[in-house]
Design a protein around this nucleic acid. Structure first.
Lengths: 217, 217
DNA sequence: CGACCGGTTGATAAGAGTCAACATCCGTGG
DNA sequence: CCACGGATGTTGACTCTTATCAACCGGTCG
């Protein structure tokens, strides 16, 4: 880790940070609200969503402990997406103004932030590719594979704490299609997805990775 | 503009920058190549693309003069997407190592870079929303509207220098669907898209913006 | 018990993809 | 000068994937 003030440590700078303890389903902020703070996630899972006036919803990203949320608004008037906790969550926030101040004094923090943003951008670009090129089958395989921690061996169990509706909103599909594709995975012996549990049993990870279709990379 | 060394000025730091004069269709870099440089676009239009092993292609973004290309690889081994000039183009590049050095010495440059990255992230998130929620009609209306400069009044002419195939690759559609939707726009008196010209005549911009479907915003 | 929520499944429809033919424009070269 | 081929774009016929609408199942919680 770089020296200097890291974004996570910004929370400890008195007088600037706010702490937020929120329940599942509550919002850190909503699209359209005047923005002004960046949130550092300490605990929990948060979904970032966009919606259209007629009610269609899209999850544009998931964020976990260690990630930063709401930075996209830094040179904007209002948040362009909502941030909603999926579990209970803990975050702390700093005003953009203070964040800017801290960053201008701490090159190492700036570099850390730049790397963080490039990683987010990379993830967003991967989503664009998945949504633009892949069919329902491939998208769901890709989603499952993406839940494997980066340095992990092929897993036999995975926590995928998403409702069918949320998987659909993440992948640009209807929830019925998601349900049908997963049912087919189960029938094919690729996974077990017990009712009411988010703990999936992975039976054929290599095949899932192959179905995800990204090739060797 | 902030004081200090701006990313555009980095080009002028001798011994670090390379200049690139490239023809239309040539690549700044290709996905899978070892990466190590960030490109500052001085002139021209560049498309960023991802592809799957079977040949499907997706344009994940367009970049113009003033934009930075290839930063996403900064903490990666290889570029995850290709960057291909659509016109002749001029860029200069700096090694990540040197870029890091410059940024660590120039807080203003870091802040500028951070804002640039958040804007790119914002654009990518908008694309995710469009791909995930909108149908062919809405996507193409959205594309046309997005070519209007931010501060411009409703235009009567627009330069949209994309082939049908490229519009399709940008929007996750087949080129036939793109052709049909545009033909329908022409029949409805929304636009004129003369054969072989990329200069479109916009006849009913308010209707196009409404069809784009993002509501008031 | 009954309502509600999440999930599954079926029937059907609609949107978009695929395949193919053809039109136009262009540059090249006989 | 005109013929040819290639690239781009349009259109039609048909197919297929996915969305939509609806019924139903099985839990859970007042």
């Amino acid at each position: 880790l770089p020296s200097g003030v890291r974004p996570e440590q910004v929370c400890d700078i008195d007088g600037m940070r706010q702490r937020h303890y929120v329940d599942a389903q509550s919002f850190l902020f909503r699209a359209g609200e005047a923005c002004g703070r960046v949130y550092m996630l300490r605990y929990g899972l948060v979904k970032l969503t966009k919606s259209l006036p007629d009610g269609r919803e899209q999850i544009i990203g998931l964020r976990r402990a260690g990630h930063v949320v709401g930075f996209e608004g830094v040179d904007d008037e209002v948040y362009r997406h909502s941030a909603q906790a999926m579990t209970s969550a803990v975050a702390c926030s700093v005003a953009y103004k203070d964040m800017t101040h801290i960053l201008s004094l701490n090159p190492a923090a700036s570099l850390h932030t730049i790397r963080m943003l490039t990683r987010e951008l990379e993830k967003a670009q991967t989503m664009i590719g998945d949504l633009g090129m892949k069919n329902a089958n491939e998208r769901i395989a890709t989603l499952i594979v993406s839940f494997v921690p980066d340095d992990s061996a092929p897993p036999d169990r995975l926590s995928i704490p998403l409702l069918r509706r949320e998987i659909a909103e993440l992948l640009g599909l209807s929830l019925e299609t998601v349900s049908r594709v997963i049912a087919e995975y189960v029938r094919s012996g690729l996974v077990k997805a017990p009712r009411g549990s988010h703990e999936w049993v992975i039976l054929d990870f290599p095949r899932l990775r192959q179905m995800a279709g990204d090739g060797v990379e």
